[in-house]
């Protein structure tokens, strides 16, 4: 609060005697909506949207073929999982995603180690990787279908191929982010080349690798579904295509919900792993500081 001082204090330069006093704000602090936790705000918003959607569909009497009501989707999910085909299809897709992702991670990390520890490998492999990266990987799904058949193998390969590049590129960046001073430090204490890799370069690369895994996990879900679209006998992608042919939009939406849950869960596993493994990184610490 500023208090107006008597006018008599005006001197010939038009200046006043001013005084400022700071003290804690009096009275109750005004509560703002944005002070509430983020998860609460966003889930409430989603809930309101779903309710709005339900009301809109019911009052306007929209056909379930165009827009199924949320209640219908929930019903389809419940029956689908209790005595329908959802469990089988979900397990198939989940396996494709997890195996494909795992292959991509192992291959991506090994290639990154190889490329960053050998000049020759770097010069030969990196340009090839750059060129291959521009090929739309999903376009290879039909080819894998021809080579490996309608089973899970072709889907796992497509998934692995899509998820491989972000892992490789982020891991390569991470391995190369070690400073030469730090390498000199390790070597001055007698570290071998292998020890420099395992005790310095690998831990330094962890935050970057985690960022790569996060991209890869989302791409894995896309890879598995697209591969199933191209040709399959089971999986959530198959279910979407099959219910599309029979205009069963409710089941399509139910499959979408399951896919989102899978994607979100995997994303959070990666994020939590990252927080544990890279607790020391600049990024994680500024988050803890509440920024």
């Amino acid at each position: 609060m500023t208090t107006q001082l008597p006018r008599t204090a005006v001197d010939d330069h038009g200046q006043h005697d001013l005084s400022v006093r700071r003290q804690p704000p009096s009275g109750a602090e005004r509560k703002r909506l944005s002070d509430l936790p983020g998860w609460l705000l966003s889930s409430t918003t989603v809930l309101l949207l779903v309710i709005g959607w339900e009301i809109a569909v019911r009052t306007a009497d929209v056909s379930a073929i165009l827009f199924p009501a949320p209640s219908g989707v929930i019903e389809a999910l419940v029956t689908g999982f209790t005595d329908g085909p959802f469990v089988r299809h979900t397990l198939v897709t989940l396996q494709e995603i997890v195996y494909g992702f795992a292959f991509a991670v192992v291959a991506g990390l090994l290639t990154a180690v190889w490329v960053t520890s050998s000049r020759l490998a770097e010069k030969i492999v990196l340009p090839i990787v750059v060129v291959l990266q521009t090929v739309p990987k999903v376009a290879l799904a039909p080819l894998f279908l021809v080579w490996f058949g309608f089973g899970m193998e072709s889907k796992i390969l497509t998934t692995a191929l899509i998820a491989f590049f972000p892992v490789l590129i982020n891991a390569t960046l991470g391995f190369n982010s070690t400073s030469s001073e730090q390498v000199n430090m390790m070597r001055s204490f007698g570290a071998t080349r292998l020890q420099v890799l395992t005790r310095l370069r690998l831990p330094t690369a962890v935050p970057s690798i985690i960022a790569g895994l996060d991209v890869a996990v989302v791409l894995s879900v896309i890879g598995a579904i697209v591969a199933e679209f191209v040709g399959s006998q089971a999986g959530l992608g198959y279910l979407i295509i099959a219910s599309n042919t029979s205009l069963d939009t409710t089941t399509m939406f139910a499959a979408l919900v399951v896919l989102s849950v899978i994607g979100l869960t995997l994303h959070y596993i990666v994020v939590l792993a990252g927080r544990r493994l890279a607790f020391w990184s600049e990024e994680n610490r500024s988050r803890h500081a509440g920024l």
């Binding site: 001073e181 000199n184 430090m185 001055s188 310095l200 831990p203 962890v206 607790f279 020391w280 990184s281």
Partner: peptide, 13 residues
């Protein structure tokens, strides 16, 4: 020998 560097060069983890 033991070496001390201009920066601490500690391992953050």
């Amino acid at each position: 020998t033991g070496m001390v560097f201009q920066q601490p060069l500690l391992l953050a983890w």
